[in-house]
């Protein structure tokens, strides 16, 4: 009798504790909403790993820029400074989170029979529609490419380049650079893209890879129709004391006359 009461109570308490722990957790996104996220925690006395924006949930400040990173690994290009072994990335490959179902088919490398084996574009009927609604009209490359131009047709946990070489999710630049060569060159030089850590050219840096800032499944996002998705902006600075509105900023000489 005693045991019968005890067990459910225990579970109730355990669940309650668990959910409240979840509620306390603050998660913020790093560069782009929907890409990498971090959970706020203390990494030292008075030192949080990140500070986050109360308005947008974006990371505003890194306590440790190298938290959770690994060396970028081999890069076949000689003139970039990551050959000095100081380039770090935040790994994503281990996060290709798979439901048990996915691990039984496709993502094990065994495609079910009757599954089309060619690269011809076709509608997705059962999977991944949440990511791409209409695979034949991908808003990237203006519908000229589709899923299997970037995702490995057989090794489903890998990307693929145009010579069928598998590419890790940690290094999408090897794939993206095949088309966007000029940008890739600038990225290697540090002119394009985001890095955090040490500023010296020989310093240790965490490199943000392409997909941490760009959404590869929708680069034509938003009104400006450019590579970067629209973001929610942070709040405007407070108006100077005594100023009621900022309307004066929005007035052209034309409209001032009216």
């Amino acid at each position: 009798m005693k045991n019968n009461v005890f067990l459910p109570t225990f579970f109730l308490l355990w669940c309650a504790g668990w959910t409240s722990a979840l509620a306390d957790e603050v998660k913020c996104f790093e560069s782009r909403k929907g890409a990498s996220e971090v959970t706020q925690r203390m990494i030292g006395e008075n030192l949080p790993n990140v500070k986050c924006s109360p308005k947008t949930g974006a990371v505003l400040w890194w306590g440790d820029p190298f938290d959770g990173t690994v060396p970028m690994g081999d890069m076949p290009i000689a003139d970039a400074d990551y050959t000095r072994g100081k380039a770090l990335v935040k790994p994503r490959s281990d996060k290709v989170g798979l439901l048990p179902l996915c691990g039984n088919t496709c993502h094990t490398g065994v495609l079910p029979s009757g599954f089309p084996q060619n690269k011809d574009s076709r509608q997705l009927i059962m999977m991944h529609q949440a990511i791409v609604l209409d695979a034949t009209k991908l808003p990237h490359g203006r519908s000229a490419i589709w899923c299997l131009d970037c995702h490995h047709p057989k090794e489903r946990n890998k990307l693929v380049d145009h010579r069928d070489n598998p590419i890790s999710f940690d290094q999408p630049q090897k794939l993206c650079g095949k088309c966007h060569g000029e940008v890739y060159r600038d990225w290697r030089e540090g002119i394009h893209g985001k890095r955090i850590g040490e500023w010296a050219s020989t310093g240790t840096k965490r490199w943000f890879v392409c997909t941490e800032c760009h959404n590869p499944h929708n680069v034509q996002h938003g009104e400006r129709n450019r590579g970067i998705a629209q973001h929610q902006p942070e709040v405007a600075p407070a108006l100077p004391k005594g100023m009621k509105t900022a309307d004066h900023e929005r007035r052209h000489h034309d409209s001032a006359r009216h």
């Binding site: 009104e223 400006r224 900022a246």
Partner: peptide, 16 residues
Amino acid sequence: GVVLEGEHYYQADAVP
């Protein structure tokens, strides 16, 4: 514009 040809205090749901 009248002053700076620019807005400091712009409000928007999404930028750019």
